[in-house]
């Protein structure tokens, strides 16, 4: 276990409303079962391009969507973004078709798994170069908010590796200087492909963001903790939330090098059981599984 992680769960599950908790779990299941179908298609050699799966990291986008969707935020994510797309309500048929390199995909086959987008949910495409979504998202936010009375919320998501890009740091500084209404999220799975953070740097991204004058927080990917932080930080933007998470599969493709450091899906289900939502959770999970199997049925 990474040294900075003391506890894998927050103990906050009982403090959240049942509706929000179950909404989060439904989104989580949708991502998980959608990507299981992607894995099936990829393993059957139906998909002829790289895929970047969120399996293991679903809690981040599903939690953010529950508390932030009401702001109708502009979303700037990176190559591993199926989770953000699904959580915020992107069209599932179009996402499936994009991954199957079809002209009916959300980017008409141009984006693939890595460069998805959805104008309907204000999710902008990513060009495939790590971290560019940060300055581009900052510029977009600046432009949208330059009239003093406007507050157009943005979420900018990066990984712990792209957080090291020099232009990401420059853009964070500018966002802090201009006090832009942006919540920066770092999906910190500790890995750049397979190179761990401790090999790459001796600093923490939250310390850098804090030094720029941003409000910062750090948490594991316990969904109730993420929801609490996202809610609080939204009152004091720009802010930076670093979320420790555990990727279950390879950087690209569907393989794995063994079990992840922790399995957030199991941990959430245990929590749901503890707060008396086991039955509802099982129903949601079964529905989600059926929905995604149905979505992919004709393609596999």
């Amino acid at each position: 276990m990474r040294s900075e992680i003391k506890e894998l769960t927050s103990g906050l599950s009982h403090k959240w409303d049942k509706t929000e908790t179950l909404a989060m779990f439904e989104k989580f299941c949708d991502i998980r079962y959608f990507e299981y179908e992607v894995k099936k298609a990829y393993d059957k050699d139906i998909i002829h391009m790289p895929v970047y799966l969120s399996i293991g990291q679903e809690a981040i986008s599903s939690s953010l969507a529950v508390v932030l969707k009401k702001f109708n935020p502009a979303i700037f994510a990176q190559h591993r973004a199926h989770g953000m797309y699904i959580s915020f309500g992107g069209n599932l048929d179009e996402l499936r078709d994009e991954i199957l390199h079809k002209g009916t995909g959300c980017a008409k086959g141009m984006g693939g798994s890595a460069s998805i987008h959805s104008p309907a949910i204000r999710m902008y495409g990513h060009d495939g170069l790590m971290g560019t979504q940060v300055p581009i998202g900052v510029g977009h936010s600046y432009s949208q908010n330059y009239k003093a009375n406007k507050k157009d919320y943005s979420i900018i998501v990066m990984g712990d590796a792209s957080a090291e890009e020099d232009y990401v740091l420059g853009a964070l500084g500018y966002a802090a200087h201009k006090k832009l209404p942006i919540l920066f999220i770092c999906e910190d799975n500790n890995l750049s492909i397979l190179t761990e953070i401790k090999v790459r740097r001796n600093w923490k991204i939250v310390d850098v963001a804090k030094s720029f004058g941003m409000t910062v927080a750090e948490t594991v990917d316990d969904p109730w903790s993420i929801m609490s932080h996202a809610k609080n930080l939204s009152n004091n933007l720009p802010a930076f939330l670093n979320i420790h998470t555990a990727r279950s599969v390879w950087h690209a493709g569907t393989g794995s090098d063994g079990p992840p450091e922790w399995d957030r899906f199991d941990l959430i289900k245990k929590d749901l059981d503890n707060i008396g939502l086991k039955k509802e959770a099982e129903e949601i999970e079964n529905n989600s599984k059926e929905k995604m199997e149905e979505l992919w049925k004709t393609q596999l």
């Binding site: 581009i136 900052v138 977009h140 600046y142 020099d166 232009y167 420059g170 500018y174």
Partner: peptide, 22 residues
């Protein structure tokens, strides 16, 4: 708009403002 001296980020910020239609 005066940008900071971070050239690479500055290019990206300019692209972002373009994306918003300005």
């Amino acid at each position: 708009v005066e940008l900071s001296m971070a050239d690479v980020a500055g290019g990206g910020i300019a692209v972002g403002t373009a994306l918003s239609g300005r």
